[in-house]
Write a protein that binds this DNA or RNA. Structure first.
Lengths: 170, 170
DNA sequence: TGTTGATTGACAGTATACTGACGATCTGGG
DNA sequence: CCCAGATCGTCAGTATACTGTCAATCAACA
């Protein structure tokens, strides 16, 4: 079979391109998340940060950025906002003056418990239009693809490596 | 079968959530795009805008935002940057003083032709880790999902509706 | 015709996201 | 102990992305 002729330069080619679909799906996902969680005033990224700090108390910002695949420079402002809302606190590490350790406050742990159902509703809604079997298939393929492409984007450490010193290995 | 017990509040739940995977895949897609296209100094969004203007010469900003599923308020700065690079020009519409019509310049049309191969390389690389059959399956499911979820995010007009007045119906 | 309501482009404000750079600090080799 | 290199948090600069608002303009109806 001959290779397809060069596609015409047209917006329709964009609609069928993976990059466009990923951007669009990310927009939709954020939109659904914000809708379900608007009572809590937490963004998806702030939520992920809270969960990660809850899972790894005393983590520092650089390792946190690896755990949630989040740029180190952006993380500073996210942490600031979470701190301003009194959901986390930062304590200097005694043995290394560069590092500030992150912990959930009581408020932070509380809001996390409260927001979980809304987050799960949101995650469910994102896939709702698909048939159950297709949802599974899509998640499987996406998980695979993200895993195999992991090093394509700037994430300084793999999550597992980042956490070695915390002694949380499973 | 009993419903699963409530998942523990853990970062692992985030890794398996659709929202996380979509965000991650979008990061990866942008990263690959920028890598392949770094010689051209064009972002994915700027590229999509150029293609759309090429496909619909004389489109206005509001309709353009619908065509590429792009927020109207953000589009202003994107247009400014494309104009600063001399890739597009804006002409006032004679019959409606509110509207400015968008056209590609010669430079814009030229860079579009040149960048296409790099863009196609990038799109290919995003899916490369999957087996060919899985690529097709993923694209099919994603296309379906984005289409069915289209109204979940703030896109004021469906692309087809937005273009009625341009008489480009196929 | 005059006024109401919708539309357009623009702007302010907030929140990701990335590059590149910086000072403070730690670590290892000599 | 001293210094070179690495790491940490931070910052400046740029580019999306969204909400909400505004003045100018247009369209439609009383």
């Amino acid at each position: 079979m001959p290779s397809k002729p060069a596609a015409p330069i047209t917006i329709d080619a964009v609609y069928a391109a993976p990059g466009y679909l990923f951007r669009r799906m990310q927009q939709i996902a954020v939109s659904i998340f914000m809708e379900e969680c608007k009572a809590f005033d937490l963004t998806p990224v702030q939520y992920a940060a809270l969960i990660a700090i809850h899972t790894h108390p005393g983590i520092d910002a650089t390792r946190l950025s690896a755990v949630i695949a989040f740029d180190r420079s952006t993380l500073g402002s996210v942490i600031e906002r979470l701190q301003a809302k009194d959901y986390i606190e930062r304590k200097p590490a005694p043995e290394d003056k560069r590092i500030k350790l992150l912990y959930l406050t009581k408020s932070g742990a509380a809001i996390l418990r409260e927001i979980i159902p809304a987050v799960e509703r949101a995650q469910g809604r994102m896939l709702e239009p698909l048939k159950p079997g297709d949802r599974k298939a899509l998640m499987g393929l996406l998980t695979q693809l993200v895993d195999l492409n992991n090093e394509a984007s700037r994430v300084p450490l793999r999550a597992e490596d980042a956490l070695e010193h915390l002694g949380k290995g499973g």
